[in-house]
């Protein structure tokens, strides 16, 4: 029987995951079988993917790839690690989307924001007190490195305009619009749809307040435009932006990116 152990194909006669561990890395505690961390022994089958890790030790590059490959649903890591995803705007949506994409192991991230972090951001954005005054682009790039140091991050600490958006994001497989202002949202969507035909765009619209979580959904609009949100809950006087719904929408957007990268059809 052939299985992969930490990314390397291996011929084994071990009938179970525990037997395979005893045969290969007997001093290691963590066992992941085909995307699922197991604590009880399980029968092995030909073609299984097994990751055997040591608790408390950060792996080398190749072994981290094997870990991600083993921990995600089979097939996901191979696809996302070769992908380039852009995130325009690194506020509530963008900073959280980037963290999720980094955890997914997206191979290359293109991130852009001109702003600096201020105390009012901390109610929903993926930053900490020590980041106050720092560029969002820099802090987000640092956050990616702390999650997965092998991801390539292209950082643009500038305001995105109709003149620079296509050159920044044109080479991406998918781009997330994660701006705050509705006119800026429309600006980047129009610019990229006009200048980069075929580029998949994931946008957020309608995520303020504390309305029903289940009103936030993902819908395909137009050829390659996917809109996440409830479509109506605008941030305005009397309706704030708060972490739970911002996080739900960011999750919708990151999962839309993953589904697109995996070739799934979003309706």
């Amino acid at each position: 029987m052939k299985v992969t152990v930490n990314g390397v194909w291996k011929e084994t006669s071990a009938g179970t995951a525990f037997m395979l561990r005893a045969e290969t890395f007997p001093d290691r505690e963590v066992l992941v079988l085909n995307g699922f961390q197991i604590s009880e022994d399980a029968v092995l089958h030909d073609g299984d993917h097994v990751y055997i890790g040591k608790k408390g030790v950060f792996p080398e590059r190749d072994e981290l790839h094997a870990l991600m490959s083993a921990r995600h649903t089979p097939g996901v890591h191979a696809r996302v690690s070769g992908a380039t995803v852009g995130v325009a705007g690194l506020g509530g949506l963008g900073s959280n989307i980037v963290a999720m994409l980094a955890r997914l192991g997206v191979g290359r991230l293109v991130i852009a924001d001109f702003d600096v972090i201020e105390p009012t951001n901390l109610n929903r954005q993926n930053y900490y007190v020590e980041h106050i005054g720092m560029s969002k682009a820099k802090a987000t790039a640092d956050a990616v490195g702390r999650i997965n140091p092998f991801i390539e991050v292209v950082t643009h600490d500038v305001r995105i305009t109709p003149d620079n958006a296509a050159s920044m994001f044109g080479g991406c497989d998918v781009v997330c619009e994660a701006f705050d202002s509705p006119t800026e949202k429309a600006m980047i969507v129009n610019t990229l749809m006009e200048k980069c035909p075929g580029l998949a765009l994931v946008c957020g619209s309608g995520l303020a307040g504390f309305g029903d979580s289940n009103d936030i959904h993902t819908v395909k609009r137009m050829g390659n435009l996917y809109v996440c949100g409830d479509g109506f809950s605008a941030a305005r006087i009397g309706t704030g932006l708060m972490s739970p719904r911002v996080g739900i929408c960011a999750g919708h957007m990151a999962n839309a990116v993953l589904r697109l990268l995996m070739g799934e059809e979003i309706r």
Partner: peptide, 10 residues
């Protein structure tokens, strides 16, 4: 005609 309108917040 398909129209996508955007509301603020992000």
């Amino acid at each position: 005609l398909e129209i996508v309108g955007f509301v603020g917040g992000g």
